[in-house]
């Protein structure tokens, strides 16, 4: 409940439309509205593919209905009556298959091109990310380690909450401590797995400040359902302030301490 209000408040503050804010608040894991470049590209693909899919289902559904409807009208509908005679005429029906084949192939070709070009556009961040976050999957929590370029003294660790600056790509390095997990924050990016013995990388970028919910997406044991995380995207100055706060020596609250 708290989270919901926080999301709505932050989004409204930054001038997002009220409708968007409400959508994200009542469905924090909604996939069809990206708030960062990767999420947006994926959402656009799903919208487009859905439109094609629904049209195909409607067209084929209509054809099947029309075909069946004709006999309902002509009164051979019930089996109890006599069976209508057999007929042939393979030739005149074949064009259906050829036409279907051509339309399908062209549609798929277009979708394939769109897919590949989307893959290219989300493959690499638009610029070299200044910040790398290393996320380690554990049954059933996320360890998050912040690694700025260069300065070792500013490294620190949190759990289950990730803070990032708005408008900047952030590199995410994914490793696992036990079994396979999957990092997923629908508004920002699709899934990348955390696999023992392997280092995976992805990147995220948030366009707007906000709190984005994520959840483990690879079955990882009994509390898989509760392996959630939140990404707090703050304007760069607020992000810096938060970071400085994290580095304050004991007495200040580190996230890990406040959780335990």
């Amino acid at each position: 409940m708290d989270l919901r209000r926080a999301v709505a408040a932050v989004a409204l503050l930054d001038g997002a439309s009220a409708a968007d804010a409400v959508e994200r608040a009542s469905h924090p894991m909604y996939t069809l509205q990206g708030e960062g470049m990767r999420g947006a590209v994926m959402a656009k693909l799903i919208w487009g593919f859905s439109a094609v899919s629904i049209s195909v289902v409607v067209i084929i559904g209509m054809l099947v209905l029309i075909g069946s409807w004709r006999s309902l009208r002509t009164g051979v509908a019930s089996f109890e009556g006599t069976l209508p005679p057999l007929s042939r005429g393979e030739r005149d029906a074949m064009p259906w298959i050829y036409a279907g084949l051509i339309v399908t192939t062209i549609t798929l070709a277009v979708l394939a091109v769109w897919t590949i070009s989307s893959m290219v556009s989300i493959g690499r961040p638009p610029k070299e990310p200044p910040l790398t976050i290393e996320i380690t999957g554990n049954q059933w929590w996320w360890r998050v380690r912040y690694e700025p370029q260069g300065d070792q003294s500013r490294i620190f660790v949190t759990a289950n909450e990730i803070h990032i600056p708005v408008g900047e790509p952030v590199r995410v390095r994914l490793i696992s401590n036990d079994v396979i997990h999957s990092f997923w924050v629908p508004a920002l990016t699709g899934k990348t797995d955390l696999i023992p013995g392997r280092i995976n990388e992805t990147w995220i970028e948030a366009d707007k400040p906000g709190v984005y919910r994520g959840q483990c997406a690879e079955y990882c044991g009994q509390q898989h359902a509760h392996m959630a995380l939140s990404v707090f995207a703050d304007p760069p100055d607020r992000f810096q302030a938060w970071w400085d706060g994290q580095l304050r020596p004991a007495g200040g609250r580190s996230y890990l301490q406040s959780l335990r």
Partner: peptide, 8 residues
């Protein structure tokens, strides 16, 4: 279906 006479 379209080129036949379906019996429902």
């Amino acid at each position: 279906i379209l080129a036949g006479t379906p019996v429902i």
